[in-house]
C-alpha cells in the first residue's frame, strides 16, 4: 500500500506542477521580454522566470547544458563574455547557435579575476565565469551587488554562495555510436534545479541539449 500512496502523491505533484507551469507560462513570457532570459524548454517548469537579470545562476556538471542556456540567450542578440574557460569548445558553441560576433573570450584572467569580472559586468549583458576564474567569497559578494545593480546575468560553473538558482547535470549519456558504427549525435542529460528562483519540489528533468540544433 505505501508504494501506491507514493505513486499517487507523485502523480498529484506532477499535475500540480503542470498546472503551475501552465498558469505561469503567460507571465513567464512577459518576464522573458522584460526581466529575464528564457531557458530551454525542459527547464521552463523548474525555472518559470527564466534566468533573471540581476541574479547569479550556477550551472554545473555539463558544458552542453551551459551552452544550451547560452544559446537561448544568444537568440536575443546580446553580448556575452566567457571568462576563464580556456578549454571551451568553440566549434560546439557555434553549432549550438551562439552568435560568435557577439562573444568575447577571456581565457585566463588569472590574478586579475575579480577586476576582470567587475569590468565585464559593466558592459556585457551576460557574463560566464569558468573554472579558471579565481574569486574569494568576499569578491563574490561584492560582484553579486554589481550583478544586481546592473541587471546582468552571471553564470558560474563553480559554486557561488547566494546564487539565485543552481542547475546541475547529474548524469549525461552520449548516444549515437556503438562498437565502431555511427557517430556521437547528442546526449541525454538528467538535470535538477535548486535555489530560491526554482520551483520547489521539482524532480529531475530530462533534456537533450543537442536536440535543438537538429530541430
Amino acid at each position: 500500500m505505501p508504494g501506491e500512496a507514493q505513486a499517487r502523491l507523485d502523480h498529484a505533484r506532477k499535475v500540480l506542477t503542470a498546472a503551475t507551469a501552465a498558469s505561469t507560462s503567460n507571465r513567464a513570457s512577459d518576464i522573458g521580454e522584460e526581466g529575464g532570459y528564457p531557458v530551454p524548454q525542459a527547464l521552463r517548469g523548474s525555472l518559470p522566470q527564466g534566468l533573471g537579470r540581476g541574479s547569479v545562476t550556477v550551472v554545473k556538471g555539463s558544458t552542453s547544458l551551459l551552452m544550451s542556456l547560452l544559446a537561448e540567450i544568444s537568440d536575443r542578440r546580446v553580448w556575452m563574455v566567457l571568462l576563464g574557460m580556456p578549454e571551451v569548445g568553440l566549434a560546439a558553441l557555434h553549432q549550438q547557435g551562439i552568435a560568435l560576433p557577439q562573444l568575447v573570450l577571456v581565457p585566463d584572467p588569472g590574478l586579475q579575476s575579480a577586476t576582470a569580472v567587475a569590468a565585464a559586468l559593466d558592459g556585457f549583458e551576460v557574463v560566464v565565469c569558468g573554472p579558471q576564474v579565481s574569486l574569494s567569497d568576499r569578491d563574490r559578494r561584492r560582484l553579486m551587488g554589481k550583478v544586481r545593480q546592473n541587471h546582468r546575468v552571471l553564470l558560474s560553473v563553480t559554486s557561488w554562495p547566494g546564487a539565485g538558482a543552481e542547475i546541475t547535470a547529474l548524469r549525461s549519456q552520449w548516444y549515437g555510436i556503438d562498437a565502431g558504427d555511427g557517430w556521437l549525435q547528442g546526449s541525454h542529460l538528467t538535470v535538477t534545479c535548486a535555489g530560491r528562483r526554482a520551483v520547489p519540489g521539482q524532480h529531475e528533468q530530462a533534456m537533450e541539449p543537442w536536440a535543438r540544433r537538429a530541430g
Binding site: V81, A91, L93, L100, L103, V104, V106, P109, G123, F124
Partner: peptide
C-alpha cells in the same frame, strides 16, 4: 548601444590583461 558598451568594456579588459588576454572567435 549594447554593442558600443561591450566594445568599450572589451577595450578595458584588453588594457587590463594585455594583448593576449582578450579574444573573439570567427567560424
Amino acid at each position: 548601444s549594447g554593442a558600443a558598451r561591450a566594445h568599450r568594456t572589451a577595450d578595458r579588459l584588453h588594457g587590463l590583461l594585455g594583448a593576449d588576454g582578450v579574444f573573439t572567435a570567427v567560424a
